[in-house]
Structures are given as structure tokens and as C-alpha cells.
Write a protein that binds this DNA or RNA. Sequence first.
DNA 1: TGTAAATGGGATTACAATAGTCCTATTTAG
DNA 2: CTAAATAGGACTATTGTAATCCCATTTACA
Lengths: 156, 156
Amino acid sequence: MFKLSKKVEYAILAVQYMAMNSKGIVSAKEIAEQLNISFEFLSKALQKLMKNGIIESKQGIKGGYVLSRPATLISLADIINAQNDEIKVVDCLTEDSECSCVREEDCTLRSPMQDIQQRINIILKSTSLADICKNRVSLIDANEILNYKFEGKSNE
Amino acid sequence: MFKLSKKVEYAILAVQYMAMNSKGIVSAKEIAEQLNISFEFLSKALQKLMKNGIIESKQGIKGGYVLSRPATLISLADIINAQNDEIKVVDCLTEDSECSCVREEDCTLRSPMQDIQQRINIILKSTSLADICKNRVSLIDANEILNYKFEGKSNE
DNA sequence: TGTAAATGGGATTACAATAGTCCTATTTAG
DNA sequence: CTAAATAGGACTATTGTAATCCCATTTACA
């Protein structure tokens, strides 16, 4: 649960590869071989990144891909959204805001889940490719908060 | 992507129902009927909540379930974890910390994704059942941060 | 100017995970 | 005793993801 799709995973690995081995244009074949992943499947992911302006492509022999902007200006959300793998914590949180579940207007789930989803999106939008190319990403000391025992005291 | 499983979704709805209609013990049948979901499938979710100490059960006729502690002391993470639907953003982030991917020790993905996952867990651990029984949950003004354009130019 | 190496992309297949069902055992109030 | 409830294993159906196949287009360069 809450797992990134392989398409997204490969897309992230690919742009990381491009960002970390900046010898200009890189072919899908090279990336696939270096990362040990299916060339054909990776190609799909790269094509979507291209269509969404994250990377630029050059066709023909000696062709390949390059990042279209610096790694500091590419967010994790950009990479994920490019693959059209919409993030929705529950079914009714679609882009068109249409909720057609059996519980309809007295649904107690939609609103709080929308909030959770928004907070996840903040994390993804505020993490850049440059960040994930470093070994560590934390902006806050996560452990301190994690170790706080929820059951220990009241939250409200 | 990033979707809660139906088992978790039903578990949340069920404990919400218990928290919001606190007339003591409630049967699985009543919850299933009121929420319009499969009784048999819901039962599995309730049994796991019980095994994990979130709710208590009473067998036999006039039996049913009650929350085992106040809604302020039950976190969203508690409910999710009870279903054994492990949250892992990428495959190699399993509980036993064993990474067996083809990229092995020079994996550039594991560490940053572990960080993302930890931050998602913070959200889930810090949101209580009491919180999600209210219509709105936000602790921070999410919109303000969301509207910040990462690239400095249009991303949407 | 032919060809090899690259991207572009539709269609299909294979597989795994999720969702849901079925069935039976056990418990217990009346 | 029995009806109504939980407990839980085993199975099936459905869906979504991952991967493959195949062919068209582009382009550097011998």
C-alpha cells in the first residue's frame, strides 16, 4: 500500500541518472542497461517525462534525452504527475471532484482523506530531484516526531 | 497510486461509525448495512482491528464491537497497521530492512524514499480518529504551501 | 542515399495484488 | 435448544500493474 508504481520508480531512477551523470544527452538504452531495467518499459516512462516537459528528446541515431531544467527545479510531484499515475488516497478523490460512492453526501471519509492527500502532495511538491540525488532528504527531524507515542497522551 | 486498500477504507469507516454513534456495542451486521458494504469483507477488517487492540469484541448473540479506547487515542496509523497492509513507498522498504533489488548497495532510491515514507507516517501517526470524525483535519494551512509554484513558473 | 541506431507509440499479454465470496466452527443470551 | 453473533480458513473473481511485441519515424554518417 502507498507504493509508487514501477513506471514512476523507473522515471525517478532515470532522471536521477541524468542528473548525476551529466555528460549531455543520454540514450534510453544506456539508462536501461545501467539500471538493469526493461528498455521497452523504461522508454514509456521517458516518453511521458518528455511529453510533460521534464526532459527533452532528440530522435535519430546519436539521439537520447536530457533534463529540460536544473534538478533543483524538478519536483518529485512533477515526475509522478508526468506518468499520469494520479494520486488518490480514496476512490472519490478524483481530479474532477466527482464523488459517486454509495455513501454520497454523508460520506465521512472524503473530506479528511482529501486533507491527508493534500499533505502528501506538499511533501512531493517540496522535494526536488536535487534533494533526492543527495543521500538524505529530511527537512525536519522526523525521528523525534515519530518516536512520540500517540497512545501516550491526548492529541486534542 | 497511493490509494488506501478497501480493507483499510472499511476499517476507518467502521471505527468512525463506532465513534460517532456511541450507543455501546455495535454488530458488524449493523455497520455493514449502514455503510452499504459487504458484511463478510467488513468482518475481516473488524477482526484485525480486534486482534490489534483497537476495538474489543463480544461473541454470541447480542455480541458486537466497541472501541477499546477514546477516539483521540486511536491514530490513522493504528487503523492502517492493524490491517497488515504495510506502507512501503518502494519495494525495498520492508519492515526487515532487507533490500534485494538489482541495484543493491548503490541504490539511489532507497534512502530518499525512506525519508518520504517516514514523513507520510508522521502524518498518519499524528492524525487521530477524533480528528477525522470532524469534517476538517488540517493542522497547517495546506493551501498556502500547495499554491507555491515549485518551478517559479507554471507547473499546473 | 542506404542503413543502423535512436525515439514514438499502439496493441496485446502475463502476472500479481486486491476485493469479494463461501463455508464452517464457536460462542452465548434467552 | 436455537438464533444471532463473532472467528477464521480457503477459494474465486476482478482489476490494475508490469512487461512485451511490433512497427513507424527520425537522423547521423559512411
